[in-house]
Design a protein around this nucleic acid. Structure first.
Lengths: 317, 317
DNA sequence: ATATTGTGTTGTGCATATCGCAACAAGGCG
DNA sequence: CGCCTTGTTGCGATATGCACAACACAATAT
């Protein structure tokens, strides 16, 4: 029951002439004869009555014609529906932290809006830590997030840029900063302002564990953005991604500590479920980001992106 | 877009596990993979998201699943409908002359009714000459008729019996019968009672033409049955099939002329359009007649019956 | 950390199917 | 009676589909 065979059958049912039908179908007469014979074997009924002079539809043939018409139409309808959906349209929901909205997103969003104005954009802001969870839950198509530690299946990640994790301190307040013998920051005594959760917290914890240091945490906040005003108030030394600091209104009112530990840099990128990545509106954004990330970041291969194994037969002429 | 492939897809869409699905489908894992890949190539969209650990339907896959379910169901529905119709049922319309109804049909009809009581029978009586026309017009499924002279395509004929064409005369009225020098019936002077049309008329005309005799036609009637009472009344000598004479209530009141020309015998049989012969109720009657004609008539091959080239793959065990 | 297990995919050889070409069969027509 | 039209069949070449085995990759166990 191949669609192609059904189309051949329908052609013959219209023309009622093997020779002409075979020409129309770009088939040799014998191939047509055998295609019809195959169909008749499958239906277990003759579809045509051949008469060396004329070809007629049998009773079963007429019924089969109805079936075939319907089947072919449904297939074409399905393809058309898929193609319609393929058209970049619909909605696109993006989740990002405030910082991301201010730093990474503007360029991308502008380009996207320009290229696909029909797509209705939904922009959700929130804590960066929740981005991956939101994507995984399917509540959102795309998120700007840090590269998760563990490589989660079902989630695709596209690195856009990397940013250092910086230690910042209040200006003119070196009295609360302790240093070790070799003049570097002493994290066991210096009071710290840290996020409750999130990647930068995990990075720091990892570092502390490595060197078996118990930190002196003066306050925990939620969200990287909130750290900076806390530090500015003199609560302690904080750890923030450089990107966050750059966009902060208080960026000039804190100082970056040079003698601090070097934490693994923060990889920021686009994050989507593989499932939603199928949707053309999402895919389009993804492609846009891929192209632009090539310009601003050279090491774009921190994370494997599954190669697009599709459209492999569509050989563009 | 083979139905089998759709079923395989649906199985995998249910199980979401290549290994188990391949077992259920009696397929090797690689065959399943490639079947799905074929489908994905045809749809030009990934249907499943594979993840080395889990398999998920993609968005396109879900839509395709809907299509596939529908397509499979329609195919099965079509097959079921065909099978239902295959069940010998429905109506069967038979056309026959009065004589046929009395002579040939009773046994066949009884056997048929016994074997297929659900079939609603319609019996139409009329002039034998119109039988073939009625069948050709499709107004009737089956007719009892004389074998047509020309072998018409689209029409199938099954000889059941042959019957002689007899010359009959009124009893005790030898004064109107003229004989030739060699004591045989003289058709140029003897008044004749003939049917206006029909096979027996054509046979006689043929004979007369062959011997260049101009007949003395005293009256023309329609229908073989009507000839006998006319002859009995003394209108002249008539030509009737033996079968008609045997069933006539006046059969003992006319005499059969032995010294008459011998016309080609009349072949009587079942007649149907090839098209209607596909219908199982018609086919069943046909088969019944084939079997019974073997008993009463040895030369059953006057007319080629196209061999049933179907069900050729259904090898009965 | 390394080995093992689970799972889908790819390489390869073989069986079968499908196609085109050419020859054939059957009936109508001059 | 031979020719034409038209569908079918024989046959060799090619394509398709399958099973087996090896592989790739990630998660889990040891």
């Amino acid at each position: 029951m191949d669609i192609r065979e059904l189309e051949i059958f329908l052609t013959l049912a219209d023309l009622l002439h093997f020779g002409r039908a075979s020409q129309v179908c770009n088939l040799s007469p014998s191939a047509l004869t055998r295609t019809i014979q195959r169909l008749e074997d499958q239906v277990e009924q003759p579809l045509f009555l051949r008469d060396n002079r004329s070809v007629t539809l049998s009773v079963a043939g007429e019924q089969f014609r109805g079936y075939a018409r319907q089947a072919v139409q449904q297939w074409q309808g399905f393809r058309a529906a898929l193609k319609d959906e393929q058209a970049v349209a619909g909605t696109l929901s993006i989740y990002a932290s405030i910082t991301a909205v201010y730093s990474l997103l503007p360029l991308l969003l502008e380009a996207y809006r320009c290229a696909y104005p029909q797509v209705q954009l939904e922009l959700h802001t929130g804590a960066a830590e929740q981005a991956v969870a939101q994507v995984q839950a399917g509540e959102i198509d795309l998120a700007v997030a840090a590269l998760p530690d563990r490589n989660r299946s079902q989630i695709e990640f596209l690195p856009i840029t990397t940013t250092e994790l910086l230690f910042i301190a209040p200006q003119l307040s070196e009295d609360l900063i302790a240093v070790t013998s070799n003049d570097s920051l002493d994290l066991s005594t210096t009071p710290l302002v840290l996020p409750q959760a999130g990647l930068s917290r995990r990075r720091l914890d990892k570092w502390l564990k490595k060197y078996r240091i118990t930190p002196n945490i003066s306050s925990e906040v939620s969200g990287n953005e909130a750290i900076i005003p806390m530090v500015r108030l003199g609560c302690g030394v904080g750890v923030v991604p450089q990107l966050v600091l750059e966009r902060s209104p208080f960026r000039d009112e804190v100082t970056i500590l040079q003698n601090a530990p070097r934490l693994e840099p923060y990889v920021v990128g686009l994050c989507s479920s593989k499932r939603n990545l199928q949707r053309p509106s999402v895919q389009a954004f993804w492609r846009l980001a891929e192209e632009s990330s090539l310009h601003c970041n050279t090491n774009g291969e921190l994370h494997k992106c599954s190669p697009p194994r599709f459209l492999k037969k569509s050989s563009s002429p």
